Amino acid sequence: MRVSFLSALLLAGTLLPQCRHGPGVEVLAASTPGSPEPLEVPALLELRDKRLDQLRVSADGSLLFTRWALSEDAFDYRVVHLPDGAPVWSAKGTPRNGLWTLELSPEGSAGFVFLPLERDSSFIIFRTAGAPIPMTDVEFTGGAWAQGGGWFGGSSGAYNADGTRRGKSVPDWLKVEEELFLPGIRPSTLRYMHDGHVMEWDGRGPPTTVGAWHCSQQAKQHRLTPSEPVRFSADGRYIAWVLRSTGALTVCDGESGTEFELASHPTPAAWVDNQHLWWLDAGALVGMDVLTRERTPRLSLPDGAKAVSLAASTSPPALFVGTEQGRLFRLPLSR
C-alpha cells in the first residue's frame, strides 16, 4: 500500500458535465422531508446509548454503515442489510491511525473496507451473500464501486467483486486522487477527475476523457480525508468539500468552477439527487437547492435529539440521521 494513499485515505467520485442527470436518479422539484422515522435495527439495538458518529448508506438505501463511539478513541463498526436487518460485517477496536476508509456498492450488494486495527490489516470485501473476502498481497489503494456493483477500482487498479484482478492501474496513477472516484453514469463504469478532465473507465481498457472538470484548481485547497470526505452530487456535477484554510464547507460547480460557502465549519453533508444537498447545523438539518441557492427551514429531530451524522440514499431519496444519544432516524423525501 503506498504511503501517499495512507496520508489522505478516502473515496469519492467523478462527473458527467455533458449530462446532469444519471439513469435511475430522479431530480426532485422540491426536496421535502417527511416526518423522522426511528429505525429500530435489531443488530444495532445494543449500541443505543452510544454516540452514532458516522453513517454511510448505499444509493438504493439497502446497505447501511454505522460507526459508534465506545470511548474517546475506540469504536464499533457495523454494516447491516436494512431490508431484513441482517448483519453483513462488523469490527471493534481502536484504529492504529485515523486513516481508514469504507465504500458501499450503489445497489447495496457489497462493499469494501480498510480499517487498520492490526499491524497486518488489509482491504476486505464484504457481501450480503457470502463470507467476507480479505484482499491480501494486492496493491489496491482505494477508489469506488462501479455502477452495478460488479467491480470496483481506483488509481492503482480494478478488481471484481469476488476479489480477482480486473485491470491494471490507470495512466499517471501516482498523481490520481483516490478521493475523486465515483460510480459512472453508464453501467459497469467508474468516473474520476484528473488534471481538469473527467475520465470514464471500464476497469479493463484505458480510461477515456468524457469532459472537463472546472473544480480542478480548487482541489488542493480542500481537505481530502476520511473524517471529512468529499461528496459529489448524484450526477457528479457538484462537489461538497471542506477548505483547508478555514474549515468551511463549500460547494463547487464542475461545469463552471464557481464555488460558494454553505457553512463556516466542517459538518456532515449528503446529496439526495443532482441538486439538493443537506447538511447538519447545530444538531438540526438544513437543505439547499444548489441551482437556486434556496435553503429549507431548519429541521429539528424529535424529543430534542441532536444530529451528529448524516447520509442519504438517492433511489429512493431519503436522509439517514444519527444522534448524540445513539438514535437512528430515516426521513423519506418527496416532491
Rank of each mutant, 00 (worst) to 15 (best):
E228D: 15
D73S: 12
E107T: 10
V176N: 06
S313V: 04
D195G: 14
T189V: 08
D49H: 13
T314C: 10
T66N: 05
S90Y: 05
T250Y: 07
T292I: 02
E324Y: 05
V286M: 02
P302F: 10
A110C: 06
L299A: 07
L52D: 00
L16I: 09
L39F: 02
L102D: 00
C19W: 13
P83K: 01
S35L: 15
E200A: 14
V170K: 08
G85Y: 06
H214Y: 13
F140K: 03
W173K: 11
D195W: 09
A29W: 07
G154H: 04
S58C: 06
A312P: 00
R56C: 10
S121R: 04
L180F: 08
K92D: 12
E179A: 15
E294W: 05
D49G: 08
P33L: 11
H276W: 05
D303M: 08
L6M: 09
D60H: 04
N160F: 12
D60Y: 06
L39I: 05
S334A: 13
V138I: 14
L102N: 01
S4V: 11
E37G: 11
A212V: 14
G154M: 08
K175E: 15
P226W: 12
D76M: 12
V80P: 02
L115V: 10
R2E: 13
D84Q: 09
D60K: 06
V230E: 08
S62I: 01
H276E: 02
L64N: 03
P17N: 03
A158P: 05
R2P: 09
L102W: 01
D235L: 03
A284G: 02
A311S: 04
R166P: 00
S315M: 09
Q218V: 13
D60T: 09
I239N: 05
L64I: 04
G150E: 14
C215R: 11
W68E: 10
P23E: 13
V79H: 02
H214K: 15
R51M: 09
G130K: 07
Q275G: 01
L182R: 14
S58R: 01
M1A: 10
S31M: 06
A110D: 01
F320D: 04
G236R: 05
A219S: 13
R231V: 10
R191K: 09
E178L: 14
G196R: 07
P33M: 13
T258N: 11
I185G: 12
Y77S: 08
R335A: 13
V170R: 08
T66K: 00
A86T: 14
K92S: 15
P187N: 08
L28R: 02
H214D: 12
K220N: 12
Y159W: 15
